[in-house]
């Protein structure tokens, strides 16, 4: 009986903790976004965060996309050939990439790069009093540090995913033509024939959400880090882990919203 009560209490505590955390993050997000509509604005900082996310993530996102496209082509060919449906390879590649793998894989890559770097940078500023210094220098730290990153995250990720979509399809095309014996034109034809605008748009919406989420998690954990270098390390880990999990969970929710009719 006692064990059961302890067990239930432990569950209750962690659920409460989770709710508290979710509430704190939601409030943080609302405050951050509210600063985007009230001056002063910091275009320079938005630009810097945008370049950091979009431009410097291009290599890793591109490589991920190309290889994913190649693997998809190979896998679906070997799978579909069992029931003579090889011709569907191009469609499978483009649909999987645009709807699912483009945004999710790019999101996970960016979570590792940007979530970590935001958390580390803001966390270091927290533990070295730089965030307090901002307040004493007539600057709201949420507006200066967090809001530009949130906006840049939501804007930069769709751009990255457009690139990932194109490169992913090219990866599939490469394997399709070089190894699987498809004609170049016919592969591209069947890629485009069945593609609907919604496939791409849904992927880009996902990308915007994931980009916002990664920036939010990085900023939140950095902003609330404490306890020196160790605290910043913990904040960095928490940012990457939480944004990765949230990307996968929200991916399901968003897919459900877009395609369950």
């Amino acid at each position: 009986m006692q064990y059961l009560l302890n067990f239930l209490a432990a569950i209750g505590r962690s659920v409460l903790g989770l709710c508290r955390g979710a509430g704190a993050i939601a409030l943080f997000a609302v405050e951050g976004v509210s600063h985007l509509v009230r001056p002063p604005f910091y275009p320079r900082l938005i630009g810097r965060a945008f370049v950091e996310i979009a431009y410097f993530s291009l290599p890793v996102v591109s490589l991920t996309a190309v290889f994913t496209g190649m693997v998809l082509a190979l896998q679906s060919y070997s799978g579909f050939s069992r029931f003579g449906a090889e011709s569907a390879v191009a469609n499978v590649v483009v649909l999987s990439i645009t709807r699912e793998l483009g945004p999710v894989l790019a999101g996970l890559m960016v979570a590792g790069r940007i979530g970590a770097s935001f958390a580390a940078e803001i966390g270091t500023m927290r533990v070295t009093d730089q965030i307090d210094a901002l307040t004493t220098l007539s600057t709201n730290p949420m507006k200066y540090l967090v809001a530009p990153r949130l906006l840049a995250g939501a804007l930069a990720m769709p751009l990255l995913v457009v690139v990932a979509d194109i490169l992913g399809v090219m990866g599939g095309w490469l394997i399709g033509t070089a190894k699987l014996g498809f004609g170049s034109a016919s592969y591209l034809n069947s890629t485009l024939n069945f593609l609907e605008p919604m496939d791409v748009i849904s992927g880009l919406v996902k990308a915007a959400v994931f980009g916002f989420l990664v920036a939010l998690m990085g900023s939140y954990h950095g902003y609330n880090s404490k306890g020196g270098a160790q605290g910043v390390g913990a904040a960095t880990t928490a940012a990457v882990v939480s944004s990765s999990i949230l990307i996968l969970a929200l991916d399901y929710v968003l897919t459900e919203m877009f395609f369950s009719r």
Partner: peptide, 20 residues
Amino acid sequence: REALNDRIGMLFQNAALFDS
């Protein structure tokens, strides 16, 4: 509070310069 802070200056113990 922000209007008040506009008139106040602070030197932090560890300087707290913005390294960016």
